[in-house]
């Protein structure tokens, strides 16, 4: 038994050393070249080749980032580590020093992030629209509403089930903004369901309860086949959903890969990414899921 323990311990230490050694060589050889890019030029691996992005589920789980990142990595030699969570948690992770930049969609929280010194500058770069989904027979009759606020009021009047994210995500904050002062009280108004869950789980719940839900279009379309829900309202002027990039502030947070974050932002706001974003979703869903902000 003791022998076995000793062997295990030795193995663990060996692995630990190997891991440390691996990191060392990386920093010792910063200007290592990687394979040739498509056009035949070689791309140099940057000195600090790992970029940590903290982002929201609507960008990552909808497939946009997995679609864009290979092109970015090929063009620049960086490796991107993506952490996706609700906007609240995504920002908190960055405040805790666990990200080099954030890509989120909640203006007020983003401004707070910059004002508190965690972020350098808020760079809005793309947008799409939230949509209101619900049962096809639309019991609250919101189909012809002008905007989301009007639709929400009708749902409240009819006391039809409405599933709220309730998780301080960007979508939840957008929902609260639309309710304004008339935000229902989840304790008293039994039709208003505060689910405290991610977008996918809330959509499943709306399907089960034949209720309404405010969602980003990308997540909804990616799940549509499994749900008995329809898009009932889209493109109201109060349903615009803007995404921003913010580089974390190296003066406030330790070990930020500033060059990496800058390179990523430059690439994302550049022509290559713009062309890719504009195409995204057209093939699969017949329409683009994200639009670029006009400068």
């Amino acid at each position: 038994m003791k022998k076995l323990l000793a062997v295990l311990l030795a193995l663990t230490m060996l692995f630990a050393f190997a891991a440390c050694g691996g990191e060392k060589t990386n920093t010792d050889l910063p200007e290592q070249t990687t394979g040739a890019a498509d056009d035949g030029t070689t791309v140099k691996t940057p000195a600090n080749p790992t970029i940590r992005i903290s982002t929201t589920t609507s960008v990552n789980d909808s497939g946009l980032l997995p679609y864009l990142l290979p092109a970015f990595e090929k063009a620049t030699g960086y490796t991107v580590e993506v952490q996706s969570a609700g906007t609240g948690a995504a920002i908190q992770k960055a405040k805790d020093g666990n990200a080099d930049l954030i890509l989120v969609h909640a203006k007020a929280s983003e401004e707070e992030f910059v004002n508190e010194g965690y972020g350098v500058e808020r760079i809005p770069f793309m947008y799409n629209y939230f949509v209101i989904v619900g049962p096809a027979d639309d019991p609250a009759g919101i189909k012809d509403c002008e905007n989301a606020a009007e639709a929400f009021a009708k749902i409240a009047d009819a006391e039809e089930s409405f599933i709220s994210r309730g998780d301080e995500s960007g979508t939840h904050k957008a929902e609260l903004k639309i309710w304004g002062e008339d935000v229902p009280d989840a304790e008293a108004d039994k039709w208003y369901i505060n689910a405290g869950k991610g977008m996918g789980a809330c959509l499943s719940m709306a399907d089960q309860m034949k209720g309404y839900c405010l969602t980003d279009k990308a997540t909804f379309l990616s799940m549509k086949d499994e749900l008995g829900l329809e898009i009932l309202l889209e493109k109201g002027e109060d349903m615009k959903n803007t995404y921003s990039l913010i580089e974390c502030n190296p003066e406030k947070l330790a070990d930020i890969n500033t060059e990496g974050a800058k390179a990523f932002i430059e690439w994302m706001t550049g022509d290559d990414a713009s062309a890719l974003i504009a195409e995204y979703g057209k093939e699969q869903y017949g329409a683009a899921l994200f639009y670029l902000l006009e400068e």
Partner: peptide
């Protein structure tokens, strides 16, 4: 994890973690 209905300690902890 519905507020005032099915939210329990563990799901509340998960939610607060997700909120940051």
């Amino acid at each position: 994890n519905i507020q005032w209905k099915t939210r329990v300690m563990t799901t509340a902890i998960m939610l607060e973690t997700n909120k940051g």
